[in-house]
Amino acid sequence: MCELCTLLAGIIGTLVLGIFAIAFGLSVKGIDRKLSARMQWRIGPPLRQPFRDVRKLLLKQSVLPKNAVPWIYNSAPVISLAALISVLLFLPIGPVPALLGASGDIIVVLYLLIIPGIAMIVGGFSSGSPFASIGAQREMVLLISYELPLSMIVFTFAWMYSIVAPSLPALSFETFGTVPIWSVLGPAGFIGATIFLVVLLIVTTGEMAKVPFDIPEAETEIAEGIFAEYSGRNYALFYLADAVKMVVLPAIIIAIFFPYNLSPLLSEYFPNLPMSDWVAYGVDILFFMLKVLLIDIVAVTFMRTAFARMKIDQAVRLYWFHLFTAGIIAMLLVAADVMGVL
């Protein structure tokens, strides 16, 4: 293929992925709002409400606070959204292998994941409001706290692959897909991996800044914190970034823990089904979307309905102490399993 074609394919792929992520993310948000309303004994908004919200925000004036630094203030939401969509380029979406899988691995994803947080911090500080500053400080602390368990999980598995499958690149999601972790782990490792899954789900909630970890934007305390001054188009972009996050983070969990597809199973059990490649693709993408939705229901909808907001020191203690300890135990279990100690 010529270089131009690769570039073109990349651009078109990114566009398609971006639109898919935004549309799907907004729908997931709609379902999340509806379900959480039902959990709270309410009716809740119609499913298409997030789309309407975005439309309304885009129509509204974007106010620039007097004390704000304009270029930082305006670029923060763009960077946030762009970084999240680029994470998707490195992640396998169901049956579709990662678009840029060849040029980056898990390390890139981990780095890219920090960018939206940093953009929010910078945007918050640059808006020059005391509420936004406090929100940004809190976001900073939260960012540092949930990175630790997150990287612990990823690197434990990378180390595991370097032992179990030395021929495959350890830090690539491709490896997670071809050799699912559950297939190489014994009982002890299974328990370890389950603990990791729970930890990762809690990290996801923190990363998405939902109750009980919505500390940086805590509405009743600091009036939406970081976003206190954002309005109109800028806020719409943050809103979209939040929606895309609801696809990206579950996609990471899926890539690590549930890289399975439905179509091989289907064709095995129902050989009569007319399973062309395209149908299989469609089925698998739908299956992927279902997995994303389920993870969102557990990590977002359920979490934000069943708990009260924590204070920042309590959240840090949870991540650094409780989840870190759980992570260490899980790591030891996995290690023991892989090394054949148990």
Binding site: A37, R38, W41, I43, A306
Partner: peptide
């Protein structure tokens, strides 16, 4: 934490809202 089970129960109830 009683809310953990309560929310799933309520999910399948008819909403209270008139």
């Amino acid at each position: 934490m009683p809310a953990i089970t309560e929310v799933w129960k309520v999910l399948f109830k008819r909403p209270f809202t008139n």
